[in-house]
């Protein structure tokens, strides 16, 4: 299980905010607490398109089973940090 809820690195958050730019159709402010569903109106197709960009950016594979627990940019950044750490170990 990923440790969602732990504080992610500021770099990861910044990188996510940058790649989220083109996906931000609602004009919501992009900060750690921004919610994908509620604030950015992501539906399941957009989620997958965005995940593909995240995977390419960080050169990781994002497992499907973490999606239900990822609500905010902070959650996703924490998950990315963990996946990156695991792939190096």
């Amino acid at each position: 299980m990923t440790t969602i809820g732990t504080e992610p690195s500021a770099q990861t958050v910044a990188a996510l905010v940058e790649i989220l730019g083109p996906f931000n159709k609602t004009g919501a402010e992009l900060k750690p607490g921004t919610r994908f569903t509620e604030d950015l109106n992501f539906d399941s197709l957009v989620v997958m398109e965005f995940v593909a960009v995240v995977e390419d950016t960080f050169d990781i594979s994002v497992p499907l089973n973490i999606l239900p627990d990822v609500a905010t940019i902070r959650d996703l950044a924490a998950a990315v940090d963990e996946i990156v750490a695991e792939s190096k170990s």
């Binding site: 919610r35 994908f36 569903t37 992501f42 539906d43 399941s44 989620v47 997958m48 499907l64 089973n65 999606l67 239900p68 627990d69 990822v70 609500a71 905010t72 959650d75 996703l76």
Partner: peptide, 8 residues
């Protein structure tokens, strides 16, 4: 299977 963010 689950496919969306935050819909646990």
């Amino acid at each position: 299977l689950p496919t969306a963010f935050g819909r646990r």
